[in-house]
Every structure is written in structure tokens, then in C-alpha cells.
Amino acid sequence: MRRIISVLMENTPGALSRVVGLFSQRGYNIETLTVAPTEDESLSRLTVTTHGDDHVIEQITKNLNKLIDVVKLVDLTEGAHIERELMMIKVKATGAQRAEIKRCVDIFRGQIVDVSSTIYTIQLVGTSDKLDAFSQAVGDAAILEVVRSGVSGIARGEKVLSI
């Protein structure tokens, strides 16, 4: 099952490598990984999406908690949550294609953020599924380059991950 684990950790050198190292060392897979400092500069927030059954996920969270640099963590997929991923995608846009792609971008509520005579660079935010769907809609033939940020997530409602 796909899980989104959100980790609050010390913003110190080496903290990220410990988290990443743990995954490879114990044979867990990382699908996406995002990390950046929070409003409190001494803390970083890391979001990792991974696959595994309940047993594996339990071990992942336990072992993450064991890392000295990890302050707190939550498995967002256990409750209602919002997840978003940012994609920037460069596509061929010539002739009749140009209008077609523009329409597609509008349907997916994306923005064209850079234009040249033959190319559109599109920015799109949403769940990973939505980004996949857009790529499919545009078609492999038109895609020149894709960059995705990896998933970030936050719990719905009153729940807050902070110290």
C-alpha cells in the first residue's frame, strides 16, 4: 500500500543522509522525497512516499523514530489529508497542437509559465495521479522534459505536526 510519511527533523548536517540511509540499509523503497526547512529554522520537514504492507510501514516508522535527528513523524495516510505535487513539463506545441495543449492545460487547471515559438512550459499542481493523467493526456510524443517535486502532504482539520 502507498503511504505518505511526514517527518519533522533537526535541520542539521547529515540528518537527511541518515533518513535516506535508513531506507536503503533496511531495504525499504523511497518513491518520492521532499525536504525543506520549516518556519522554525531549526527544523526541517521531510515527506516521503513509500510502499509496503502494515508490517513494513510499522518498521519504517519505528526505525525513523529511532533516529536521533527525527523529532516527530506521522503517517498521513492513516487519516484525512491533503497531498500535492508540483510538476513542470516542457511540451512540443506547434500548429494545431498549440491550441489543443492550451485547452488541456485549462482542463487540468495548470498554467503555461514559459512560451517559445515551438514549446510550452507548463506548471501543474495536484495529486500524483492528476499529474500522471495530464502527462498521459498530452501524450509521450509531445513531452520533452518533466520535472516533479515529489509529494508534500498535510493533515486535514485540527491535526498539526509540530513540537
Binding site: P13, G14, S17, R18, G21, Q25, I68
Partner: peptide, 14 residues
């Protein structure tokens, strides 16, 4: 040393 020892320490400091 921090990198080489990372998987076999409880924690490390530089």
C-alpha cells in the same frame, strides 16, 4: 568517517 560509520552507529557528530 560520519558517512562510513552511519549505518553502524546509534548517532554521530562532527
Amino acid at each position: 568517517m560520519i558517512g562510513v560509520s552511519r549505518p553502524i552507529v546509534k548517532h554521530s557528530f562532527q
